[in-house]
C-alpha cells in the first residue's frame, strides 16, 4: 500500500479532491480496504468521509425518507423510523455481515459497490430509491435501478459522489426478505428474494441470480392484472425469465435457479398466510 489520505470537512473540499486521478472515497472501508488488499484497486489518494460535516442523518420527509451517505448499517438498524416505515430495508440489512461489518459499513457504500448480491440493493430497488449525486457542477438525481449498470459498475463519474439516498415509506405493503447463503450472515448470498405485497400489487427483486439485482417486471404486472384468475405456475414462470445465474465458488447455476424458484413459491405462501410461521 502506498497512498495519501485526505479528510475534508466540507463538500467543496471533498469534490475538489475527487477530481484528482486515482482518488477513492473511503466510507466504512469494508469493500474498499479488501479491494486494496487484493490489489483490485490501487489508489493514489484516499478521501475519507470521517470528518465531513453533515450527511450523517436519517430524515423523515413525509411519504419518503432520506439517508445521508455517512449513515452506517448499525445506525439504520437502531433507527425508530426505519423500523416503523422501512421494514424491508431493516430485514435486508440484518443479513449483512457481522456486527463488526455493520458498525462500519454504510448503506451508500453497499449500493455503490453494485454487487449482484448487495442485500440493501434489493430493499432499495423495492422501495423505488433514488440517489442524490453531488459534484463541482451541482447535483443530479438518479434512480438506483438506473444507477447500477453491471457488477461493480455504476454511472458515477470522476469528481462525483453520492450525497444521500431517498426512498418511499412502505408501511402499507407486506415485506419479506429471504436469503440463502452458506454461513449465517457472513456469506454473501447464493440467492435472495425480496418482496413487498398487497392484494393488488407485488414488488419483487432478486439478488445473486443475474449480473445485477433484477426485477421481474412481467411477473409483477401479471399479479396486478390477473387478481381473479391468478395462476401461481404462470407467475413463477414469468418471474424466472430474468434469472440468469452463473456458476461460481459459492454455488452452481442450477442450484441458484432451484433456490430462487423455491423462494418465490415461499414468498407467495407466506403472503397468503401473512406470516413467516407459515413456512
Amino acid at each position: 500500500m502506498s497512498f495519501d489520505v485526505q479528510m475534508p470537512t466540507s463538500e467543496e473540499g471533498l469534490v475538489s479532491l475527487l477530481s484528482k486521478e486515482s482518488s477513492h472515497i473511503l466510507a466504512g472501508g469494508t469493500d474498499l480496504l479488501v479491494k486494496i488488499r487484493l490489489k483490485r484497486v490501487i489508489p493514489k489518494t484516499i478521501v475519507s468521509l470521517r470528518h465531513l460535516k453533515g450527511l450523517d442523518r436519517i430524515e423523515d420527509l413525509g411519504d419518503k425518507m432520506r439517508v445521508g451517505c455517512r449513515v452506517t448499517i448499525s445506525e439504520l438498524l437502531n433507527s425508530e423510523i426505519i423500523s416503523r416505515h422501512a421494514r424491508i430495508l431493516q430485514m435486508a440489512l440484518r443479513q449483512i455481515g457481522s456486527p463488526q461489518i455493520r458498525n462500519r459499513a454504510t448503506l451508500a457504500g453497499n449500493i455503490i459497490n453494485a454487487s449482484p448480491a448487495g442485500d440493501s440493493i434489493v430493499a432499495m430497488v423495492l422501495s423505488n430509491a433514488s440517489l442524490s449525486i453531488g459534484s463541482a457542477n451541482g447535483e443530479r438525481y438518479e434512480r438506483v435501478v438506473d444507477f447500477i449498470r453491471g457488477p461493480g459498475v455504476t454511472t458515477l463519474s470522476r469528481g462525483e459522489f453520492v450525497k444521500s439516498i431517498t426512498f418511499e415509506k412502505t408501511d402499507v405493503l407486506f415485506p419479506q426478505f429471504h436469503k440463502v447463503g452458506q454461513r449465517n450472515s457472513m456469506a454473501i448470498s447464493v440467492a435472495s428474494v425480496g418482496s413487498l405485497t398487497s392484494e393488488s400489487e407485488i414488488r419483487l427483486a432478486f439478488g445473486s441470480v443475474a449480473p445485477t439485482v433484477v426485477v421481474p417486471i412481467d411477473a409483477c404486472e401479471y399479479y396486478s392484472a390477473e387478481i381473479d384468475s391468478f395462476d401461481e405456475e404462470r407467475f413463477v414462470e414469468l418471474a424466472m425469465k430474468c434469472v440468469t445465474p452463473i456458476d461460481d465458488v459459492r454455488a452452481t447455476a442450477w442450484y441458484r435457479t432451484t433456490v430462487v424458484r423455491n423462494l418465490i413459491h415461499r414468498t407467495l405462501k407466506v403472503w397468503r398466510k401473512k406470516g413467516y410461521n407459515a413456512v
Binding site: 479528510m7 472501508g29 480496504l33 479488501v34 475519507s48 470521517r50 470528518h51 456486527p99 461489518i101 462500519r104
Partner: peptide
C-alpha cells in the same frame, strides 16, 4: 463503544 475489525480500519480514521 463499537466492535470493529481493525484489519479494515485505516489508521487516520481513528482521529478523535
Amino acid at each position: 463503544g463499537k466492535a470493529v475489525n481493525s484489519c479494515l480500519v485505516l489508521l487516520p480514521e481513528i482521529d478523535g
